[in-house]
Computed example of a mutant assay.
Amino acid sequence: MKPALLVIDVQKQFFDESPETARSLNAAIEYINAAIALFRAKNLPVVCVQDVDEEDKRVPGAPHFDVPESVKVLPSDLHIHKTYGNSFNKTPLAGALRELGVDTVILTGYCAEYCVLSTYRGAQDHDFAPIVLRGSLASGVAENIAFVERIGDVISYGALKKVLG
């Protein structure tokens, strides 16, 4: 197994959606950052996926497009810009992961029931094994996080740490 960590749509604009969303994102960031540190320690790829929406003016260069400073992604990480919920749809993500020898994707980010779940299904369509990192998803509706974790393959941070050695 060679995994990559996907950090999906943790962008400044989404913290302004609602107080519930901001709380959910802040809670997820703790797990996301722990996973980023683990992947870096194991020299495994970290991928930052950012949603582009010209109508909402969420485009590269706009301040609310950016990832918050509290999320430990680096400019040297692979950055993918998407215009669909599924991070694989019309992006170079699948090809880039194949070039890196990746066969498994660990999914984190926002919004659990939309972009994360769409990316989970997209990973399967591209023959990657998708796994959700428990505690690392965010949504404006807490029940939707539990739903996504219930219907997909999930791993805890402790188990991921053990699996990665």
Results as ranks from 00 to 15, higher is better:
S24C: 09
T104D: 09
F14G: 13
A123Y: 05
V67C: 09
E20F: 05
K161H: 11
C115I: 00
I8D: 08
L97S: 10
A129F: 05
S87R: 04
I131V: 15
H126N: 14
M1V: 07
V52Q: 03
Y84K: 07
Y110H: 14
I8F: 02
D77L: 09
D9V: 00
P75V: 04
L100H: 02
K2S: 08
A94T: 00
L6V: 12
V67I: 12
G61S: 08
A22D: 10
P68V: 06
T119M: 04
L44W: 08
V148R: 01
P92V: 00
L107F: 11
V102N: 08
P68C: 02
E30I: 09
N33K: 06
L38Q: 05
A142Q: 14
E20H: 05
T119Y: 06
S70C: 09
L74C: 10
F39T: 11
K161N: 11
A94I: 01
H64K: 10
I32W: 03
D51T: 12
L97Y: 04
V59I: 13
V73W: 01
K57I: 15
L5T: 13
H64N: 06
L38E: 15
T108L: 01
Q11C: 11
V105D: 03
L107Q: 06
V73M: 04
P60Q: 15
S118F: 06
L97W: 05
K57Y: 10
V49H: 10
D66V: 06
T21Y: 06
V46N: 00
T83Q: 14
C48K: 04
R134V: 08
A94G: 08
V10T: 09
N86C: 10
G152E: 06
L133T: 02
A4H: 13
D153P: 13
F15A: 04
A62Y: 12
G140P: 01
Q124M: 06
G135V: 03
A138T: 09
Y114F: 13
C111Q: 09
F88V: 01
R98F: 07
L5V: 14
R134H: 07
L44P: 14
A28W: 03
A146Y: 04
Y110F: 13
L117V: 00
G101N: 03
R98D: 00
S136G: 08
C115R: 14
E20G: 03
Q11N: 08
V67N: 08
S156D: 10
N86E: 11
I29A: 07
A123Q: 01
V132N: 02
E113D: 10
V148D: 00
